[in-house]
Design a protein around this nucleic acid. Structure first.
Lengths: 353, 353
DNA sequence: TCATTTTTCGTGTACGTTAACGAAAAAATT
DNA sequence: AATTTTTTCGTTAACGTACACGAAAAATGA
């Protein structure tokens, strides 16, 4: 009995049922002004009843509306290529939604330079954007920018690390605490009985520390909670060049003999290089992120485990969240934690960011 | 200098440049008959030069063409809920592409019943489908069906397990050998020195074995290649009910003391149940798949590791491959291996299929 | 040469939505 | 009551492609 054109309820059908013109229906659909409360209610009711879904193709074809998103993440440096992956994800998302009239413009800053962050942030603030994705590395500077965005009612997405307590659209990234906790769990498997562990923080900017500290906290708490009597030592290395790191490590390893070294970020390759060049063996090495350098040392057995949290997907989902929010006005999950992936020699070739 | 309407090269512009009507342009675009070689060449040249990309929105709006995909996977049983996840992925994909005029119809079969497979397969063969996604569990029966599809020129996608040497569109699933190899690697970490390992195959249908055997092969080869002197024992359990499995395990464990038990599929929960109920401790247990039962025993520390290979994504990508191939006529990667994920107590809550 | 068939092509409408323009109705002002 | 202002609404032309219909042109047959 169904007619061929069933399933196609459009503005025309709604207009017919409501005894108005399609123009009026269009007005309430896009809630523009110029329609009386009474007819608006009537039309809304019919839309509800028909469970009307606008035809996105007709919409896109007829509309000339454009949206602009800005992204603000660290630039790729010789020091670390980590941010290549989120950028990839951002570009992938941008490519997928560009046909829908959305333009994504990427801004960058230097992780070692707060001023560069402020410069880019102010460019965005004055650039008429409809949505922003950012990696809030510097707490203070980010805060100022966040407040600007809130004031202009621009939705904001955080990736990679969170600044809790802000009115942002969502956070997409690791649960840092849990990530450190898992590392401890692995250490425990590696050598269940005796173990002396060295925690290594390598980071120039103090600000980045809140990030690393959360991981360290998780790491420590694992052993506390599980009542293991193991010895934890920690060193902070605030210069990121190799000679300096080498020196610090040498000093430390002279003092004591360690079973495990846990590097709290992606700079684990630098430590691996030191181990490799100096034929230091028998120490298990754990660190972060699927980077070329890291994989190199994973393959040659200097690094034992890498933990990775889908950096590319973070970028992708970040942009998509803005799209879902602004275009489809879908509901966005406030905290989207990434899976915690363990990468070894055997599975790295199947890993996808 | 760019005009506002730059970037919008359409059939109209092509027609103007070629001194023909848009109807003719349309004919060569959709390579329909009724246009002379000369004008066709002329138009093709212009299309090439302009790098014309048809507007998918206008195309979709104007076209009333529909495509139908069929999927054929095992039904979810009380024995195992594994196939819930691929089905989820299939549904997600179906939902995403339904607006593009694609209908996905799901067919199922009983893993313990070859006839049910044949029944569903013949339904599909006579059902006028434009693409098929299947899990080729039964080798012989699948082969017959595959040949039918090839004959009808229906593109075919395999998920979860492969039957090599067929002219299918692509395979999406684990690299089985590598997956077993990785398990062995983990075992090696668990107890690097002494280890007696029991491999457990639980499967009713002999046919499914080629699947499990590949994993076992990888597992064994790891130890061979790495020259470890460990002892491997294997048992096949061909009844999948608990009492029977329990009996088999009890018999085996009476014979010997094992350090590690490796279950080659998702039925590891059954083994875990036996361990749990009989207070068997000190044996490391490794198995497959992120299932509720398995996670239960992972949490209570009976199972130590689970290996998972994105079953949901397999379903999703499988359907999407058909879409990409038939609608966007994109190039499809012939073998798409899933990442090998290691699931532990600490990261399972962040795992996403 | 004329009629007939076949090939090649142009015209026009439809798809469902957007948005500009202006008409009609209602409200406010004189 | 007449005029002006404001609010509410209808009409219509796009958007780029698909496709049916039929006209013109070319090829074939007599």
């Amino acid at each position: 009995m169904e007619k061929k054109n069933s399933g196609t309820v459009g503005v025309k059908e709604i207009a017919r049922l409501a005894n108005v013109s399609i123009g009026t229906v269009d007005r309430v659909l896009n809630n523009r002004v110029g329609v009386s409360e009474k007819t608006k209610a009537k039309i809304l009711k019919i839309i509800e009843e028909l469970n009307y879904q606008p035809n996105i193709f007709a919409r896109r074809l007829a509309s000339k509306k454009k949206l602009r998103f800005a992204t603000l993440i660290p630039q790729v440096s010789e020091e670390t290529t980590y941010w290549e992956a989120p950028l990839q994800g951002i570009k992938q998302a941008a490519n997928e939604i560009k046909d829908f009239g959305i333009e994504v413009i990427t801004f960058f800053f230097d992780q070692n330079n707060k001023e560069s962050f402020k410069t880019s942030a102010s460019k965005i603030a004055s650039g008429e954007f409809d949505g922003v994705l950012m990696a809030p590395m510097f707490e203070e500077e980010s805060t100022a920018f966040i407040e600007q965005c809130n004031h202009q009612k621009i939705p904001l997405v955080f990736i990679n690390s969170d600044i809790p307590g802000f009115n942002n659209l969502c956070y997409i990234g690791p649960n840092l605490y849990q990530s450190g906790y898992l590392s401890a769990h692995i250490v425990n498997y590696l050598s269940p009985s005796t173990k002396k562990t060295l925690i290594v923080n390598i980071s120039k900017e103090i600000d980045l520390h809140h990030h690393l500290l959360r991981k360290e906290e998780g790491f420590r708490n694992y052993f506390e909670q599980n009542g293991h009597s193991n010895e934890l030592t920690k060193i902070d290395i605030q210069q990121t060049d190799y000679p300096h790191i080498k020196q610090k490590l040498a000093d430390q390893l002279k003092k004591d003999r360690y079973d495990v070294v846990f590097v709290t970020n992606s700079r684990v390759a630098t430590v691996a290089r030191y181990f490799d060049e100096n034929k230091i063996e028998g120490i298990k090495l754990i660190g972060y992120d699927f980077l070329e350098d890291n994989i190199h040392y994973l393959k040659n057995k200097t690094i034992d485990f890498l933990i990775c949290q889908k950096p590319q997907e973070q970028g992708y989902k970040g942009v998509m969240s803005l799209y879902d929010h602004l275009v489809l006005n879908a509901n966005i999950e406030k905290e989207q934690f990434m899976p915690i992936d363990i990468i070894t020699r055997e599975n790295f070739q199947y890993y996808s960011n």
